[in-house]
């Protein structure tokens, strides 16, 4: 099974207070931001790794191609990180600026990459932690005329990705879908649960360790060293026949109000209730 995993680099959500907007408030300034792999994409990378390995024997049985569309020169740090976790190949598409890369441009670029790479599956984050549009996956499927399952919590295949049984947890219950590849999946965080992925190769009774606070497995030294020899191809917008066009106009960015930051400790529940009633006036 061949899976394409798109990876966006986003400003570290853990340091969101470092984000600034420029003087006329029409764009986020990238100066001084710490870039990390979009956590939602990390979930998909982990799911893709689980779909393409025999976890009991620690053997890879499929192929993962990670693709990153990177403003400017084409930074490959996060592709390398993904290769260090076990992915096979990387593709970097250097393109424009963050503002130019709205969901429709991203979907067009990815569709062109998919046409070249012909994967069985595209597995991507349900959204990016910066823009939160949650559109690119669906748009991509539309352009490819592929089925799409958003917010997948479980993915199972027993025929190497020809067909899948996919679950989505909704407010009204769990929805189970059968879908034929090729297909686009976007994943929910529950995809990381120890038994969320079944690929017909890893024994069904195998349980992954709980990842705790992590969004994907840790890299290991062997993979990092092997990653040095793994290829990272560059595809330009010309190669892909895609033009940057302004699909979205950003009118204004406003930073959230700083929190007042005061905390008060109370001794008893009664006191808390009383304060919530009389001081905070929320009850």
């Amino acid at each position: 099974m061949k899976i394409l995993v798109p990876i966006k680099r986003v400003a570290d959500p853990a340091n969101a207070n470092k984000v600034k907007v420029d003087d006329d408030a029409t764009k986020v300034t990238s100066e001084g931001l710490e870039w990390v792999m979009n956590p939602f994409d990390e979930w998909s990378l982990e799911a893709a790794l689980r779909l393409t390995e025999n976890a009991a024997e620690k053997a890879r049985v499929g192929e993962i191609v990670v693709v990153s569309i990177t403003p400017g020169e084409g930074d490959t740090d996060h592709i390398r990180e993904a290769l260090g976790k076990g992915a096979e190949r990387g593709i970097v598409v250097p393109a424009g600026t963050d503002e130019q890369l709205d969901a429709s441009v991203v979907a067009k670029i990815l569709a062109a990459v998919v046409k070249k790479e012909e994967p069985d599956v595209v597995l991507m984050g349900k959204q990016a932690a910066d823009g939160d549009s949650a559109v690119a996956g669906t748009k991509l499927a539309e352009l490819l005329e592929w089925p799409v399952v958003n917010y997948a919590t479980n993915i199972a295949t027993s025929d190497e990705g020809k067909t899948f049984e996919v679950k989505r947890e909704l407010d009204i219950g769990v929805q189970t879908l059968k879908v034929e590849g090729p297909v686009v999946f976007t994943s929910s965080d529950r995809i990381l649960r120890p038994d969320s992925i079944k690929n017909g190769v890893t024994p069904d009774d195998f349980e992954y360790a709980d990842l705790g606070d992590l969004n994907s497995r840790l890299s290991n030294l062997k993979n990092i060293m092997a990653a040095r020899k793994k290829p990272i191809d560059t595809m330009t917008l010309d190669d892909l026949g895609v033009e940057l066009g302004v699909g979205t106009e950003y009118v204004k960015f406003t930073l959230p109000q700083g929190r007042s930051g005061s905390a008060e400790f109370v001794e008893t529940v009664d006191e808390l209730v009383q304060k919530l009633q009389t001081e905070a006036k929320v009850l």
């Binding site: 390398r80 030294l221 990092i224």
Partner: peptide, 9 residues
């Protein structure tokens, strides 16, 4: 690059 990558991991 590999040295820096190892340290961050």
């Amino acid at each position: 690059a590999t040295c820096s990558e190892v340290l961050s991991q």
